[in-house]
Design a protein around this nucleic acid. Structure first.
Length: 879
RNA sequence: GGGCGCUUAGCUCAGUUGGUCAGAGCGCCGCCCUUACAAGGCGGAGGCCACAAGUUCAAGUCUUGUAGCGCCCACCA
């Protein structure tokens, strides 16, 4: 077998099979096909992104589903693509510009965009190449990018439709503001972190009379924007002040004291400084009491011209320092206490966000949410695991309007135009359309772009150039299943469902599978920003793509986070090597077969091992199907692993050696046929999980009229091949062999040395029929069996299902060791015997338990009893 | 403050609807370079399934409570 090396080397085969599949066009899906479609759209990774292990898990699952459905005869269509990721990409472009010493302010919009596209062409889409290395069988000719011309048109189309429906409006209010990207961000992009901060108490002197009010705050610098102080109107301490005013320290301003139910008298001092321009609660209070709204910050969160001179242009941090100093110097600072509170951080900028007054575009969500809630509620869309439904419902039911405008350039510019020089608040001065006004020279387009998620939310139909009606759209929408991480359930999944219902009138997918979140040893999410995600490409180089795919699935149970470490990939590598060598063995020992034989020719000659392994195979097929259908990929993989390693390699192949090395040609052919046939089925079952090695090996075992494994029919389980008699007998045989081996090992019989075996048993069927197997696998030279045989002197004993096994060990036997061994077994058995006995003495059990369960318990008791008797008598003989 | 999840062998975890002496991988111990595979083979040690109560003939599995850990959501200055 010169072409199959002893150790599997994935690097030698992966590349060539991938280009072969591509060349053959196997990944292509046609909307004209007669076959039923099976469609997945990839969650489009950021163009800026590189592959993480999270993507590997996610993509492997999709590839498993696609490859399996392709083998099952569906028109499998996996649509790949990337997301323009406006904030992330713009940040990268900014970094590049900085390196080139170019300032964004000096560039026109188009010049900036040109730089951005240059960057995208040069560095973007690395991740697509990486997905190919992993073996993903995407239809690459359908690759989409969220800023492709057609896709962009679809995005704008969606905006215009919603605007025309009255669901999109412009609002001047507080938004979450990221000072780094200097843009508004949505509520979902704000991450709350618990921080150790301080709570300062500041004295605000009353205006026109003696006395003062004390307020507590975590952000003293915002006092420069205070336009009021609020107390609870029920609070006897303070209600007398309502309607009066105070002199705001450090400024020359006089601001009113108002009564508002929002104030909790128990908290802090019971008085709240009100900064309507920089705090959402204060914003509401301000509106209720007609307070002024002062914006004291620039877009980068430094203080602006609305504050007194000496604080202008200071950063918010520096301003806080100075203000506290001055308050303290002037006697306004009463005290400061350590205080733990939540601070909102920008998802991308990783700095605290600011609440900032600005004009933004909003999408009304309530009406969109209703149908989306319904389809999940009624089971048109199913989540796996289902507990995510609660999270989804909770968010949907409390949904707030979505701020969809961003003060960025890279993205879809909002398709709204304002008449030059006119009041843009009047409807007649606003134009909204995909193509813009007929007289563009008189209009100015809105400068903002859309939130990235306001483009990716139409992904399942946007990739088919909606709203054009195409065959593709008809054939491949709705998609079959969505595979994604639970972290984007609000960002993306929920919004896609809303968009699907709104624009297509139909759900975008029937099932959603939420993958495990991968964490490092410290429990932190693997992410590129933390730098704790090993480079999957390195792991692929080290272990092979098949091994990585297989391992990551094996360690990722449904609905649970995974502690990832690179060493865990060894399990897959070892398995691939095992499979490789099993195939080598089969290949080496079946060269006498001229063609791959039909199973039917030899099936009538099946003996126990062949019947057994066939039965095991069909149970395996059944279970693999069940697990995949239930989205339990770890179980599916484990099932194949166990069958291949334990049943096929450890038992079937070992047993087959007897016939393969023997001279019974019929027997040999039968065993060869079965060995090949089972291996072929294993390769098919495994192909979706480990595509490269299975394709490679397949070509050693396929018939001349069969094609590549990627298009070979998926195995079908046949109930008639499940043979429980064979399985039971085989189990006993395995126990006999294991017992013999155990005795040998514990008595220190060297592996090379053959032993004799004496079996005392009523029914000698097993010992007679499978003597050759017991001898071969147990290292036994002769077997003697019968009902009235007496125990040979100096022999070690084991009891298996009514059989007493004796191995004469003359001289080798250590009586104490043997006693210990039997005692231990006896104790163990007695414990279980007593527990079963208790169960059977329980009248209620006998009355209420289903008869088969009762029967089973009785049988167990009987068998245990028999074994106990034999153990006891053998133990007595040792004394 | 609300919601969700987790707690099983030294480590990382499986265990789908309650019912075969509780499983795997890694690690550990012993023996083996046996002509498919030392990335391997054979044998073995190791667990009151977090704790408590309940439902049931029967609980790792269902219910409730307790403790610890983790995640998500929420405007208390």
């Amino acid at each position: 077998m010169e072409n199959l090396k002893k150790i599997f080397s994935p690097e030698l085969i992966e590349k060539q099979w991938y280009s072969y599949w591509l060349k053959k066009g196997y990944f292509r899906a046609s909307s004209d096909s007669e076959k039923s479609p099976y469609t997945i759209v990839i969650p489009p990774p950021n163009v800026t992104g590189i592959l993480t292990m999270g993507h590997v898990l996610n993509a492997t699952i999709q590839d498993v589903l696609i490859r399996k459905s392709r083998m099952e005869g569906y028109e499998a269509c996996w649509i790949p693509g990337t997301d323009h990721a406006s904030i992330a990409t713009e940040a990268k472009v900014m970094t590049m510009l900085q390196e080139k010493n170019i300032k964004k302010e000096d560039l026109t919009r188009n010049e900036f965009l040109n730089h951005a596209w240059d960057w995208k062409e040069k560095y973007g889409g690395i991740i697509i190449q990486q997905l190919k290395k992993l073996g993903c069988s995407c239809d690459w000719e359908r690759e989409s990018f969220t800023m492709d011309a057609e896709y962009s048109r679809a995005v704008l189309e969606a905006f215009v439709k919603l605007y025309e429906k009255g669901l999109i409006y412009r609002g001047h209010r507080l938004v979450n503001w990221c000072p780094v990207s200097q843009s508004a961000i949505s509520d979902e992009e704000v991450i709350h972190k618990e921080m150790q901060g301080k709570l300062w108490t500041i004295r605000y002197p009353l205006n026109g009379e003696d006395g003062a009010i004390e307020v507590a705050t975590t952000r003293p610098e915002t006092m420069l924007g205070d336009t009021g102080v609020a107390v609870n109107p029920q609070d006897d301490r303070y209600k007398k002040y309502i309607g009066k005013t105070i002199n705001l320290p450090l400024t020359n301003r006089v601001i009113p004291i108002v009564g508002d139910e929002f104030v909790d008298p128990e908290f802090g001092t019971g008085c709240v400084k009100v900064t309507p321009g920089h705090d959402p609660n204060d914003f509401e209070i301000g509106k209720r009491h007609n307070l002024d709204f002062i914006n004291i910050m620039n877009p980068d969160a430094s203080l602006n011209e609305n504050v007194i001179d000496k604080y202008r242009n200071l950063s918010r941090e520096k301003a806080r320092e100075k203000i506290l100093e001055e308050l303290n110097d002037k006697g306004f600072l009463v005290n400061q206490k350590p205080y733990i509170h939540n601070v909102g951080f920008s998802e991308r900028g990783s700095v605290p966000i600011e609440y900032y007054l600005s004009e933004q575009w909003y999408l009304k969500m309530k009406t969109l949410a209703e149908p989306a809630l319904k389809v999940v509620e009624e089971g048109d869309i199913n989540f796996h695991p289902s507990h995510w439904v609660k999270t989804y419902n909770h968010w949907m039911k409390n949904i707030k309007d979505w701020c969809i405008s961003r003060q960025l350039i890279w993205g879809h510019q909002i398709p709204v135009w304002y008449k030059k020089g006119e009041n843009s608040n009047l409807p007649e001065n606003i134009h909204v359309s995909v193509n813009g006004p007929d007289d563009p020279e008189n209009w100015e387009q809105d400068e903002d772009v859309l939130d990235t998620w306001a483009s990716s939310w139409i992904w399942p139909f946007g990739v088919h150039d909606w709203p054009q009606k195409s065959r593709d759209l008809e054939a491949f929408y709705p998609t079959t299943v969505l595979v994604t991480g639970p972290d984007i359930i609000f960002f993306w999944v929920a919004r896609m469902i809303m968009a699907g219902k709104e624009f297509m009138g139909e759900i975008p997918f029937k099932d959603v599978y939420f993958t495990s979140i991968l964490r490092d040893e410290k429990g932190r999410k693997l992410s590129k920003s933390l730098g704790n995600s090993p480079d999957p490409l390195d792991l692929i180089d080290q272990y092979g793509a098949d091994a990585i795919r297989f391992s990551i699935l094996m360690i990722s149970p449904q609905g649970m986070d995974v502690l990832f470490s690179p060493e865990r990939m060894e399990l897959g590598r070892n398995f691939m090597n095992k499979l490789w060598n099993a195939a080598r063995f089969v290949k080496m020992n079946t060269s006498s077969l001229e063609t791959i034989p039909e199973l039917g020719e030899v099936e009538h000659e099946f003996q126990l091992p062949e019947k057994w392994i066939t039965s095991r195979l069909h149970i395996t097929i059944q279970n693999v199907n069940r697990h995949i259908n239930n989205f339990r990929f770890n179980e599916a993989v484990k099932t194949i692993y166990d069958f291949t390693w334990s049943d096929y390699c450890d038992w079937m192949i070992e047993i087959s050696k007897i016939s393969l090395y023997g001279d019974d040609l019929n027997r040999k052919k039968c065993v060869q046929t079965v060995a090949v046939s089972i291996l072929r089925q294993v390769l098919c079952l495994l192909h979706p999980f480990a595509p490269f090695i299975t394709e490679e090996l397949w070509h050693h075992f396929k018939t001349s009229d069969e094609g590549d494994i990627i298009k070979t029919p998926w195995p079908v389980h046949d109930k008639n091949k499940i043979d429980s008699d064979a399985e039971q007998t085989m189990t006993v045989l395995q126990e006999v062999i294991t017992s013999v081996r155990s005795i040998r090992s514990s008595m220190g019989v060297s592996p090379g040395k053959k032993a004799d075996l004496v079996i005392r048993v009523k029914d000698g069927f097993l010992a007679k029929n499978y003597e050759y197997i017991i001898k071969f696998l147990g290292g036994i030279s002769s077997i003697q069996s019968g009902e009235n045989i007496s125990k040979p002197p100096n022999s070690a004993t084991a009891v298996v299902k009514g059989m007493e096994l004796f191995i004469p060990l003359e001289g080798l036997i250590d009586v104490n060791l043997e006693k210990e061994r039997l005692e231990k077994r006896k104790q163990e058995l007695t414990r279980h015997y007593e527990s079963v006995q208790r169960t059977l003495k329980n009248k209620k059990f006998l009355e209420k338990a289903p008869p088969p369960v009762v029967e089973n318990e009785k049988k167990k008791l009987e068998e245990m009893n028999l074994e106990l008797e034999k153990l006891t008598s053998n133990l007595e003989m040792l004394n």
